[in-house]
Amino acid sequence: NITAAIYDEIQQEMKRAKVSQALFAKVAANKSQGWLCELLRWKENPSPENRTLWENLCTIRRFLNLPQHERDVIY
Rank of each mutant, 00 (worst) to 15 (best):
E70M: 05
P46H: 02
L57I: 04
A4W: 15
L23Q: 14
A25F: 03
D72T: 04
K18D: 05
S32M: 09
V27D: 01
N56E: 09
K26I: 02
I10G: 00
L66T: 12
N45S: 09
G34F: 10
K31Y: 02
E55H: 12
N30Q: 07
I10W: 00
N30D: 03
A29P: 00
E38K: 05
W54F: 03
K15N: 13
R41T: 11
E9S: 13
E9H: 12
L53N: 14
L40D: 06
V19T: 15
I74S: 01
L53I: 11
E38T: 09
A5K: 15
E55M: 03
E70Q: 15
P48Y: 15
L39C: 02
M14V: 03
A4D: 15
E13W: 00
Q12R: 07
Q68H: 12
S20R: 06
E49K: 04
T3P: 07
I10K: 01
W54A: 04
C37S: 13
Q68N: 05
S32K: 12
I60A: 06
L40A: 05
E9N: 10
K43C: 01
D72C: 10
N30Y: 08
K31Q: 03
W42L: 09
A22Q: 05
C58Q: 10
L36K: 01
R41Y: 13
Y7E: 01
C58A: 04
N65W: 10
K31I: 07
F63C: 02
T52C: 14
L57G: 01
E38W: 12
I6V: 09
F24W: 03
R61D: 15
A22G: 06
M14L: 08
D8G: 08
R62A: 07
K31A: 12
D72E: 12
P46Q: 06
K15D: 03
A17N: 10
N45R: 09
F24G: 00
F24N: 01
A4I: 11
W54T: 06
S32N: 05
V19G: 04
I74C: 02
Y7W: 06
L39E: 05
L40G: 04
A5R: 13
R71V: 01
N45D: 04
C58P: 03
P48L: 09
V73F: 10
I74G: 12
L64P: 00
R61K: 06
Q33S: 06
P48M: 14
S32D: 06
L66K: 12
E49W: 06
W54S: 08
I74K: 02
I6Q: 02
L23P: 01
L64D: 00
L23A: 05
N50T: 13
V73K: 11
T59V: 06
R41N: 09
Q21I: 03
C58W: 13
Y7P: 01
A4E: 15
L64C: 04
E49T: 15
Q12P: 01
Y75T: 03
E38M: 07
H69L: 03
A28W: 05
I6Y: 02
P46S: 02
E55C: 01
E55R: 08
K31E: 10
P48T: 11
W54M: 11
V19M: 04
K15H: 15
P48R: 11
V27H: 03
Q33L: 08
L66C: 07
L40M: 11
E44S: 13
P67N: 15
T3R: 09
E38F: 12
P67A: 06
I74P: 04
H69V: 07
L36Q: 01
N50C: 07
S20L: 06
W42P: 06
C58D: 07
R62E: 11
V27C: 06
L39G: 02
Q33I: 06
A17I: 03
L66R: 12
A28I: 03
S32G: 08
L64T: 01
L64G: 00
D72K: 08
F24S: 01
